[in-house]
Design a protein around this nucleic acid. Structure first.
Lengths: 197, 197
DNA sequence: TTTTCTTGATTGATCCGTCAATCAAAAATA
DNA sequence: TATTTTTGATTGACGGATCAATCAAGAAAA
């Protein structure tokens, strides 16, 4: 049957299944069997392709990171002014793909798991650095250096906070109003002109 | 030795031990034995006093909520103006007690676990509602209604986001600069006067 | 003695990771 | 082309470890 390698397909199916399972359960303690079942294969096969469970989870994280990175890159190309670039980076974090409940729940679960897993912590740091530098690339030209850094931190914190609320699905902000909230912060920072005592 | 009932002491010791254990591990999947060991008793005794593990975890959450509530109440009494009240509510979330790494990590873990436990979700909603109404009690008098709500949401999101960053201990903001970041947001909101398009 | 407090031992369930075995396609060989 | 060999894909079953929860019984206090 394997005219071509099954491996890429299986890996993708398993990673997608992992996101789904983690997102639904809202935690990383889904069983390998559950993930494999969703992907339509046996748990043994999941181990065959990924090794330990931790490896599958890390691969899943990397997949999410890549997806996010791609979206950001695409959005940045359509942005001319610095201000547009900052707004684009913000908006991507609430895009249909990124702000899906399963994706958000998976991110939150990864944040928690990162406290015990050095590789996961490393991956999250990559994400944080990338977000920061993406924001700074626009902010640097709009604000004095120290205010730019501060604003990037504020924006990042707000985004993370809105993710938590989304994960809890209670006062769940819809993407549009979430973007508006962060954009509003940005606007104020820019009109204030960076002279906060 | 037990002149008085042991129960209150044991319960408190077990809850404290749970916070410590959860905080260190950064997740709720600490074993009952581990918690009991830290409290200096057997795991059977933990079950004797709390029933199931879930019950101990819920009691631990309620304990954290009560602690936070007490601190907020105390702070609000020393605050005269509406603006001071808002600032006090913000500051409490970054107080020495609340912003301890173990406490922060425990909160984050509870956020994740809440997705599977209805009682925990309920407790978190209590927390969110209380924070919102505490913020609103001051903001209502400083901003038009809709802007007040918006500002409360922004502040809450920022606080949660800063908690995540603290839990990851990476770009870990110290309490002072965390407060400054949120206060800065508040200041801008107030001086902007609530006429954002 | 009766009640409160405490534990060691045990059980039943869950789950990860491994292994031997199967099957079908492809490659090599005759 | 027909036959044999190799290889990738896949699984069921299982060992081993962990853990929540229970229970019966022992110490301590009232």
């Amino acid at each position: 049957m394997p005219r071509i390698g099954m491996e890429p397909m299986r890996r993708k199916a398993l990673i997608d299944a992992a996101i789904l399972a983690i997102g639904e359960r809202g935690s990383l303690d889904v069983t390998m069997s559950e993930i494999a079942r969703r992907a339509g294969v046996s748990s043994a096969l999941a181990h065959h392709y990924f090794g330990a469970k931790e490896d599958l989870l890390q691969a899943t994280m990397r997949h999410l990171l890549r997806e996010l990175g791609r979206e950001v890159s695409a959005a940045l190309q359509n942005s001319a002014t610095p201000r547009e670039r900052v707004a684009a980076v913000i908006a991507i974090n609430f895009s249909d793909v990124q702000f899906r409940p399963e994706t958000v729940a998976a991110w939150l679960a990864f944040y928690v798991a990162a406290q015990r897993s050095r590789p996961m912590r490393r991956l999250l740091r990559v994400y944080a650095r990338r977000l920061h530098s993406n924001l700074m690339s626009g902010l640097r030209q709009l604000l004095p250096a120290s205010e730019a850094v501060r604003t990037a931190e504020g924006i990042a914190a707000m985004i993370d906070g809105l993710y938590i609320r989304r994960a809890l699905k209670e006062g769940a902000p819809d993407p549009a109003s979430a973007i508006a909230l962060v954009d509003d912060y940005l606007t104020m920072k820019l009109t204030a002109g960076g002279h906060t005592s």
